[in-house]
Design a protein around this nucleic acid. Structure first.
Lengths: 205, 205
DNA sequence: AGAGTATGTAAATAAATTTCACAAACGCGA
DNA sequence: TCGCGTTTGTGAAATTTATTTACATACTCT
């Protein structure tokens, strides 16, 4: 792998390719061309090839890519050839949906802890979890060596919780709170805010 | 407004600015400089000014931007100076969370219909809604003139539902199903897949 | 009126991303 | 084994996006 400096935008596309390949593998296909994969995910064939070639030569001229092999390589590159334990903070509606979501484990993730600061929720069950007190969050996350968290608390609480997560050693935050977070450069944040996504489309409607 | 061709990437940033401004307005502030707004959302001051200037001159030298006025203008530009009725398809955990989500209405959106194809769910309540049969979806959406839909069905069903939504006249789809959708160019799609977002971060951890 | 501040814009880069085009490599069938 | 059709990997070109610099202009405050 050319470990130089891969642009973020390429890393951002790889999970899309991975998802499409995973579906194809499930439906029994063995090989695929950049052309076909491109059509499936809405990207040009040249771009698919160029993106993949950043990391090695995984295809075969005349044939295309072995789906199983490319899957394996993409999982390695994205480091999802393992299961990451994830902490969930905020046990509202969205937190409940995420705690029960079946789509994590075969994509490399597993929710293992759920926190909330509401005394009425603490101790209650969500799926297999017992909701824990955010007061103990830093310690619990540290000792379990958790590096990834999902944040589904109200906006006013989000920055404070994010600070605590950083202190606990978390390196990646999936933020559902409708607010931009301020974190050190060494910590990654991805944002999910349905209103933002909808507002990105209304301009064109 | 210079209606030429505004890059997607700029349109994509405007909702972020809008969200930050809205929070500031709520906390009672009156004006803000490009510098301050930039720090808040993690963008350079020059870029904020350049983005905004695509659409007009909304600031005042020496003072900055009136928050209320810039809010009004951004809402106009993004066409969220109104309430868009939204159809929700898929009444699983995620659908329930979205149906009850309080964060839409003051951002320009309102869920007004919920569909599912599960006979056990049809007729049941979610919040204020009664779950309707997807069999009637096209007709219902057409006659209500709905242009925006959110898709929270399982991946195998998503493309088919998307086709129906397009047929019903929907122009913007917020897709929570873990699959890339194939739609005409005139229809916009935004994707939310928590596993994808997580996989975009593990590379760096 | 003067000092200080902050926008809007232009210009010039610089950086990044995407597209193009084609040699090289592979599989298949005869 | 040879020839044909296919598809990769990749330089080079083209395009898009971001950054930087610089100022004239306009506004507030004292």
């Amino acid at each position: 792998m050319n470990a130089d400096k891969i642009p973020d935008i390429i890393i951002g596309r790889l999970p899309i390719y991975l998802r499409a390949l995973q579906r194809m593998a499930d439906s029994g296909l063995r090989t695929i061309s950049s052309q076909e994969l491109g059509e499936m995910v809405g990207v040009s064939a040249a771009q698919i090839r160029k993106d993949i070639s950043q990391f090695g030569e995984f295809g075969k001229q005349g044939t295309g890519y072995s789906i199983a092999y490319l899957l394996e390589k993409l999982r390695e590159i994205l480091k999802v050839d393992r299961i990451w334990n994830v902490a969930l903070v905020g046990a509202g509606d969205m937190g409940h949906a995420l705690a029960r979501y079946q789509g994590f484990v075969n994509r490399g993730f597993k929710v293992v802890m759920v926190f909330d600061n509401d005394q009425n929720k603490i101790g209650q069950h969500i799926g297999d979890f017992i909701i824990e007190d955010t007061a103990n969050m830093i310690e619990r996350i540290k000792s379990a060596n958790i590096k990834i968290a999902m944040l589904t608390v109200p906006a006013p609480a989000a920055q404070h919780i994010a600070d605590d997560l950083v202190e606990a050693g978390v390196k990646a935050i999936l933020n559902y709170a409708p607010i931009s977070l301020n974190v050190p450069k060494s910590v990654k944040v991805q944002y999910i805010d349905p209103s933002i996504h909808l507002q990105r489309m209304t301009f064109y409607v």
